[in-house]
């Protein structure tokens, strides 16, 4: 029974003279406590202000600046040109491709991860832990290396192609295509989908399914009416964890994609390292960031995840 358990009827007592003094003392104690908390928070606050908030501000400022003919950024003549360029057909095409690819990746991950998580959650505890470790290993493994492994596999003289030829087929040319990028992204982010789904399903009260069966639901109906609705938070968390990083993916398309499969992340990087158009790159970054923030806020508003894990 804490403050939350109190049934409040509003303030009744009028603070008298001595009581008012006491109240100030209580306030002083609370202020001292707040000050202590603030001081403990301060180092990270200071650090993030210097190395995150200010850099964010600089990008915002740069996005309104002008690029000189030599590729330098001129911090004057503020304008919206960079933002106007976001509607160029090339940019829109890249944005749509990125969005589609991210959606496809998320759906494919969900398709394979849900049954896997369900399978894991319904095993004996001992086996469950082994399977969990098997998912955790790729989750913790170096992302770059895992993506590189697919370059080895899918290369023109890689095992996949060789296998196909050995079986009398054509050499398979997957590398540098959208398919290769999707395979790489699914491979990279699948564990991010499995883990929240598994957490949601494992925590579920399975006696609810028994209750549904007891009340004449068949296995499929019990799943549809009980298990699936209860696992929605996991589905949403997993989808967000896959969708958002794939939107900004850079490493995977850079390794497995080709010239015709430029994605948003790739495109932004090229504005800084190749095209040297910092204002436009900044505007692109801001746009991408706003989309992701919006997606995240929608997620938190609508689904209000109860657990903090993942």
């Amino acid at each position: 029974m804490g403050p939350g358990g109190v049934d409040g009827r509003g303030a009744v007592s009028e603070p008298g003279g001595a009581a008012a003094a006491r109240s100030e003392l209580e306030d002083a104690a609370r202020r001292a406590e707040a000050r202590r908390g603030f001081l403990i928070a301060l180092p990270a606050w200071f650090y993030l202000t210097l190395f995150f908030v200010i850099p964010l501000g600089i990008v915002a400022v740069y996005s309104f600046a002008t690029r000189s003919s030599t590729g330098r950024t001129v911090l004057s003549d503020w304008n919206f040109d960079s933002y106007r360029r976001l509607w160029d057909s090339l940019v829109v095409e890249i944005a749509l491709r990125t969005l589609l690819l991210a959606l496809a990746t998320t759906l494919i991950c969900l398709m394979f991860a849900y049954p896997l998580a369900y399978y894991m959650a319904t095993r004996r505890p001992a086996l469950r832990n082994v399977l969990l470790i098997l998912v955790m290993i790729p989750f913790w493994s170096n992302f770059l290396v895992r993506t590189y492994a697919w370059k080895v596999l899918l290369g023109s003289d890689g095992p996949v192609s060789q296998l196909s030829q050995a079986l009398g087929g054509e050499p398979i040319r997957l590398l540098f295509t959208n398919t290769a990028v999707i395979i790489g992204l699914v491979y990279g982010f699948l564990p991010f989908m499995v883990l929240p789904l598994y957490t949601a399903l494992e925590r579920m009260d399975w006696s609810l399914v028994e209750a549904a069966r007891d009340l004449y639901a068949d296995g499929w109906t019990a799943f549809r009416k009980v298990t699936w609705p209860l696992s929605i938070p996991g589905v949403v968390a997993g989808s967000i964890l896959v969708f958002i990083p794939t939107l900004g993916a850079y490493v995977t398309p850079a390794i497995l994609g080709g010239a015709k499969t430029t994605l948003a992340g790739d495109y932004i990087v090229s504005q800084f390292l190749a095209a040297r158009n910092q204002p436009f790159g900044s505007a692109l970054s801001m746009g991408m960031m706003l989309i992701m923030l919006a997606a995240t806020i929608v997620y938190f508003r609508w689904f209000r995840p109860s657990g903090r894990d993942l």
């Binding site: 990270a44 993030l48 995150f52 600089i58 850079y250 992340g265 932004i268 970054s285």
Partner: peptide, 26 residues
């Protein structure tokens, strides 16, 4: 506190590429 809480989540949510750009310019 709430601003602080939000600020701490930002580096996780923000795309890596954006953060890279931010720090380079900074």
């Amino acid at each position: 506190q709430r601003v602080y809480d939000g600020l701490l989540y930002l580096p996780i949510i923000i795309p890596e590429v954006t953060m890279a750009v931010m720090l380079l310019l900074f």
